[in-house]
Simulated assay, not measured.
Amino acid sequence: MAEATGPDADYDFELWSMDGNLRAGDDFDQEIQDALRASTTGVFAVSHAMLTSPYIQNIELRHFLDTGKLLVPILLTEINAFADLRGLAPRQILGWNNPYERQSSRATRRRWATKLAEELHRVLDERSAR
């Protein structure tokens, strides 16, 4: 993920994750709420864990669905074809046929990350042209 959101000439990507942005003792809900309010785009790493997390479903994903902010779902791990996608079903999910976890070498992971970066640029460019 960091490869796709690294230094960019056009956009200021900030990779936000619990592990990287929260420290022991932080009020995680307040930190996440602040980050959600400040965000313009949410890239959601779709996985079984994401689809079964009440916090992600009820707070994080709901924020993007309710506000109309840009939401870009990407498939990290294979999921059951009949899984409840929690509001993501009508959206194209990047990597649906080729999730990140299938990338077995550094080269294929880089190609996958490059494709993600290109898709983010395409979507953001189209949105800013409106």
Rank of each mutant, 00 (worst) to 15 (best):
V72H: 08
R122Q: 14
S47D: 04
A45E: 12
D26M: 05
Q33F: 02
D27Y: 03
N80K: 11
N80P: 03
S104W: 02
V46C: 01
T67L: 04
L85M: 11
Q57I: 12
T114S: 07
N98T: 06
P54F: 00
K115P: 00
E126V: 07
H63M: 06
R122G: 13
F28H: 10
T40E: 14
L36M: 08
E3T: 11
T67H: 07
A117N: 14
Q30R: 15
E60N: 06
E101W: 01
I56F: 13
T5F: 09
E14C: 07
E78L: 02
G20P: 02
R110L: 12
D34K: 15
D34S: 12
D84G: 05
D84P: 04
A2Y: 07
E3G: 10
M18H: 12
G42V: 07
E119R: 05
V72A: 07
E119D: 10
T40G: 15
D84K: 15
E118T: 12
A45G: 10
R23D: 06
L94H: 12
A4P: 13
D10E: 14
A38F: 00
P90M: 06
R37N: 11
L120V: 11
E60P: 08
L36R: 09
A9T: 10
D66F: 03
L36N: 11
Y11A: 06
S128N: 09
A35R: 15
D10S: 15
W96Q: 11
G25P: 09
K115I: 03
Q57L: 10
R106Y: 10
V46K: 00
Y100V: 01
V46W: 00
A89E: 15
V46N: 00
N98R: 07
F44L: 15
G25F: 01
H48W: 10
A81H: 13
V72E: 06
A81Y: 01
R23W: 03
F13M: 08
N97D: 15
D8Q: 03
A89R: 15
L36V: 08
L124E: 13
W96M: 13
E14A: 13
R127Q: 14
L61I: 07
N98Q: 10
W16G: 05
V72R: 03
A83F: 00
